[in-house]
């Protein structure tokens, strides 16, 4: 039990813009990952939780990552080369966002 607790990974996830809508107006939440926490695992958990609209916000119909889906891990944008293999650590903060115009 003790070992399992030490290995569990808790991520703070913040939802911006399109993802705020896709999660039905969730600003942020904590998400528990299994022991091999990766971005891919996090995304899969969220797709299961929030359903098709959320999945469509992340993936193109051919399964590739949409250019409008950005992952920002602890303040740094995750690169677009094989992003889902990025390892996540306990206490990490992940922002899922889409870009937008600068104006107003």
């Amino acid at each position: 039990m003790l070992i399992e607790k030490e290995l569990s990974v808790s991520i703070k996830v913040k939802y911006y813009v399109l993802f705020f809508i896709a999660t039905n107006y969730c600003l942020e939440e904590s998400v528990q990952l299994g022991n091999s926490g990766s971005l891919g695992e996090l995304v899969e958990i969220l797709c299961q939780k929030y359903g098709e609209e959320f999945r469509r916000s992340i993936f193109c119909p051919d399964g590739s990552l949409k250019s409008t889906a950005w992952f920002i891990l602890n303040g740094r944008r995750v690169g677009t080369d094989n992003p889902f293999s990025v390892r996540l650590n306990d206490g990490d903060e992940m922002i899922i966002s889409s870009p937008l115009l600068v104006g107003g």
Binding site: Y16, V17, K66, T68, P99, L100, L101, G104
Partner: peptide, 14 residues
């Protein structure tokens, strides 16, 4: 692809 963002948030999304 960003239409929904513009129509929902306007520039506040920035």
């Amino acid at each position: 692809p960003l239409y929904e963002v513009a129509t929902t948030f306007g520039t506040t999304a920035i």
